[in-house]
Design a protein around this nucleic acid. Structure first.
Length: 856
RNA sequence: GGGCGUUUAGCUCAGUUGGCUAGAGCAUCUCCCUUACAAGGAGAGGGUCGGGGGUUCGAGUCCCUCAACGCCCACCA
């Protein structure tokens, strides 16, 4: 407890109180309490490769207000932070920064010195290094960014317990991730399979359904002529991907399509390549698309995959993993011209091949007319730059209900069991789960990630036996199969016939971040801690990653623990720029958070963020930050003022009706704010508190300040001071979750300890239900109504509010007159009124005639 | 094509089970240097609550319908 400063200021309060909170361990999680006294938050680990922006400030503030509320409610708040530094974006930065590339076949080198630290020359050829070395460099580079992130989050006032920090690539995360995978494998929930999968040709990795997005791209319909094998004419096919013609395995029309019914079971020959393919029926063919009959290739899109599987068609892949036409033509192309045509396409990208084949078709006369340009949606990897291809490869999957109705039902039920904030977000989840069309593909052909922790035995001829993977003991985790050796083998047996080979892949970043509750709670590493926090209370996150992060976390927890990982999911909205467009760097409308903290203070920025209702998109608004700044300043000033009246024994009830009425009004605000916070609605809690606060400052304090100075009587002054101090204490605590710095500052002037460890206010801090006979709201409306009329009269007369009023005549109902009479002395003080008379009238309206004194 | 959300003052938004004359902040305008605060204060103007229909004594609120905008999912020859 210190004294009230002469000139209160918001300057530098952030650094002052940040240091204090560290010193006092204000935000530390108490590991001794039982689960029922814990509030556990599964904080989203931000991606470290980028920079923190207003979106982070926005959503993390929301969570922080909730954390602070529950801490004041006496819960031990488990509020960890994690860094998501596992994955592609980091990998790319490390390659560019150090001038290295990851090659899992290179052995680990202790104390490796990278060729560069920052800006390798343009002609530098990346030096291949082992995967463990590469991961070390990733950790080194991300550490710098993580420091910056931590500083920013501290400055924002997040009440995170920084001792709980984790990173998704750290040892604990890798161990948890591999352990969970191995358990999935042991229970049959993870499996490997060779199958056509969506493939990014630039990253050269498989991608999962959840990572897809559609982009509108220009394309062109080409009308191709297929020749009936019986010589009875041609069939026209519309396709946007003529470059796949050599991969054509069938023509397919709808079973009910009368135009093509007679052709089912017959064959046709492809243009240019002269390969015989069957004409088949399948209900997925759409009669109104193109010519109503489609060319099925291996593989142009996911429909092709379905046809290929269901109609048991052969495989004729022509696109390689680099997105180019492979050199080996399908052996079905026996025609000499066909082989020549194919050879002319080898090595071309899909786009180049399309141009080339269009020219060939035009030349051979097997294309009708010119290509007709269209715009159509094409599937992309969300981080990729080129359309996805479909290639056949061996991948690991985790079951997620995409191929199993009963599992799907179980996961839907888990989603239903959550309390969603806002509630309608539950539809995003069920919508996604119901639309799954396959299991979760978790393997990625990348390096910086958690390795798939298995090896495979090699036969005496060197064949990989995928059916009996060699798994490590859990005690060995984390492992890297590219350098570690499975039990029963020696290092020199690696990749030798009769030996073993390590799985070359890493797991999808979501395969690790789907375990954030387990990682943060130190699952299996610290059973005591885990039992005190799991399942968590809250998962806060963006609604754009319901299908990825939220759903995958649910899948893992369902399998491993047989429960949902949390009871509540709070989805935050987007930040829009003032023109209602989503903010983005490319538009140059991104303001950095630090500048805003410097300009308005952290509390003001938090105030803006907390004004947005849960899950609602919100416009970026510096105006709102100015308002927040004003609020924080006002809080300082009014606190100084109230405390300046001197101490009072607040255990005694105030005697004046106005004072009691004010406390009753505030007690209702406490109830509302409490109810709002319990349903995660920080915005409503703020709105109610703030609205009361401005009324308190503008009307109540003005009404009682003269009396509080002991101008009239000690008894009256005491009543006012008791009410003022009770209200102030409650207001400090009500604002604490939103304005942690300013409230801590004012709290320190007159209280011991942190406001953030003070108990959340309750009604009985303000009022006891006995001994108050008038209706608080009626009383306040009457008194403030009268004061308002006097103020209006002065404003209309264009005189100072300090101007003396000679007489006030009030006409009102008996009850209103009674209230005004009771508190008349305060009204007269606030309005500088010399004399007044009251008349009881039938009307419910309050009429006030004000006679101003002549200017002195 | 399926689902979800939004539509209230110039702007951003409240309006909780239907109930006085629909609210706030910002912006605009007027006034006031008033010993907590001029980085302040006091006031004013401004809305036929997206359109249409219905239920009701009474609808911003409930029902039907249409529209616009946004998002999610699916399809995509």
């Amino acid at each position: 407890m210190s004294t009230v400063p002469e000139k209160p200021s918001l300057d530098n309060i952030e650094s002052k109180w940040m240091a204090y909170w560290d010193e006092q361990s204000t935000n530390a999680f108490d590991r001794s309490v039982s689960r029922s006294d814990v509030f556990a938050i599964d904080t989203p680990p931000p991606t470290v490769s980028g920079s923190l922006h207003m979106g982070h400030v926005f959503s993390y503030t929301h969570t922080d207000t909730i954390a602070r509320y529950w801490r004041m409610r006496g819960k031990s708040v488990f509020y960890p932070m994690g860094w998501d530094d596992n994955g592609l974006p980091t990998e790319r930065r490390v390659q560019n920064y150090f001038g290295v590339s990851c090659d899992p076949s290179v052995p680990y080198q202790k104390d490796l010195v990278p060729p560069f630290r920052g800006d390798p020359p343009k002609d530098h050829k990346a030096v291949p290094i082992s995967r463990p070395n590469f991961i070390e460099l990733c950790e080194e580079l991300t550490a710098e960014d993580e420091k910056i992130f931590e500083d920013l989050f501290r400055r924002l006032g997040l009440s995170v317990d920084w001792s709980l920090l984790y990173a998704t690539i750290d040892e604990r995360s890798r161990r948890a991730s591999q352990r969970a995978f191995l358990r999935n494998l042991a229970r049959g929930e993870a499996y490997t399979q060779e199958a056509p999968t969506l493939w990014d040709v630039d990253f050269k990795t498989a991608v999962a359904q959840a990572e897809l997005e559609d982009r509108e791209r220009p394309g062109a319909y080409h009308t191709l002529t297929f020749h009936r094998s019986d010589g009875n004419g041609d069939i026209l096919i519309d396709t946007t991907r003529p470059e796949l013609l050599a991969a054509c395995v069938a023509l397919i029309a709808h079973p009910d399509d009368d135009r093509y019914k007679p052709l089912f079971g017959t064959t046709v020959r492809t243009p240019l390549f002269n390969v015989e393919v069957p004409v088949l029926a399948h209900p997925l063919a759409q009669q109104d698309k193109g010519t109503g009959i489609a060319m099925c290739c291996t593989f142009g899109d996911l429909t092709d995959v379905t046809w290929w599987r269901e109609l048991q068609l052969p495989t004729r892949a022509i696109i390689g993993r680099d997105g180019r036409i492979i050199s080996d033509a399908p052996e079905e192309i026996t025609d000499e011209n066909g082989q020549r045509h194919y050879a002319s396409l080898v090595g071309k990208s899909a786009k180049q091949a399309q141009t080339a084949i269009a020219a060939l078709l035009a030349e051979s006369g097997e294309m009708v007319g010119e290509p007709r340009p269209i715009n159509h949606p094409v599937k992309f990897y969300e981080k990729g730059d080129r359309p996805l291809e479909i290639v056949t490869s061996r991948q690991w999957y985790i079951r997620n209900g995409g191929r199993d109705q009963s599992l799907r039902d179980d996961l839907l039920a888990r989603g239903e069991s959550l309390t969603w904030h806002p509630d309608h977000m539950r539809h995003r989840y069920s919508n996604w789960v119901e639309g799954l069309n396959g299991d979760w593909l978790i393997s990625r052909q990348r390096y910086f990630g958690v390795p798939v922790p298995v090896w495979y035995p090699l036969s005496h001829t060197g064949e990989i036996n995928y059916d009996t993977p060699l798994v490590p003991d859990e005690a060995q985790l984390p492992i890297d199969p590219s350098t570690d050796v499975p039990a029963g083998y020696t290092a020199d047996q690696r990749d030798k016939p009769g030996g073993f080979t390590g799985d070359p892949d890493v797991m999808d970043t979501w395969a690790t971040s789907s375990l954030t509750p387990q990682i943060a709670a130190q699952w299996e590493d610290n059973a005591d801690l885990f039992s005190r926090v799991f399942p968590f209370d809250l998962r806060p996150q963006g609604h754009d990653i319901i299908r990825t992060w939220l759903f995958s976390t649910m899948v893992r927890s369902h399998f491993e623990h047989g429960t949902a990982p949390w009871s509540n999911a709070a989805l935050s909205g987007w930040i829009l720029d003032p023109d209602r467009k989503k903010m983005s760097k490319s538009k140059g409308n991104v303001v950095t958070p630090i500048d805003l903290f410097d300009s308005y203070g952290s509390d003001a920025v938090r105030y803006w963020a907390a004004g947005a209702r849960p899950g609602i998109d919100t416009a970026f608004s510096e105006d709102q930050m100015k308002v927040g700044r004003k609020l924080a300043t006002k809080l300082l000033n009014v606190s100084k003022f109230v405390l300046g009246f001197g101490e009072a024994d607040t255990s005694i009830s105030p005697t004046h009706a106005l004072d009691s009425a004010m406390l009753h009004r505030l007690a209702d605000v406490v109830d509302e704010a409490t109810k709002a916070f319990e349903s995660y609605d920080y915005a409503r809690a703020l709105e109610r508190t703030e609205s009361f606060f401005w009324w308190f400052c503008d009307d109540y304090v003005e009404l009682v300040k003269t009396r509080a100075y002991a101008t009239h009587s000690e008894e009256g002054a005491l009543s006012a001071r008791i009410a003022l101090r009770r209200a102030l204490s409650v207001l400090h605590r009500l604002f604490a979750p939103i304005l942690p710095f300013a409230t801590e500052e004012v709290w320190s002037w007159w209280q011991n300890g942190s406001v953030h460890r003070a108990p959340w206010p309750i009604r009985t801090d303000l009022v006891t239900e006995t001994g108050f006979t008038i209706h608080a709201e009626t009383h306040l409306d009457a008194v403030c109504g009268a004061l308002g009329e006097i103020r209006r009269a002065k404003t209309e007369a264009k005189v100072s509010q300090k101007a003396i009023v000679e007489e006030v005549v009030v006409h009102a109902s008996e009850g209103v007159i009674s209230s005004i009479t009771t508190s008349w002395a305060d009204i007269a003080d606030a309005g500088s009124v010399q004399k007044w008379t009251a008349h009881v009238s039938d009307t419910t309206d309050l009429t006030v005639h004000v006679t101003l004194a002549p200017p002195a």
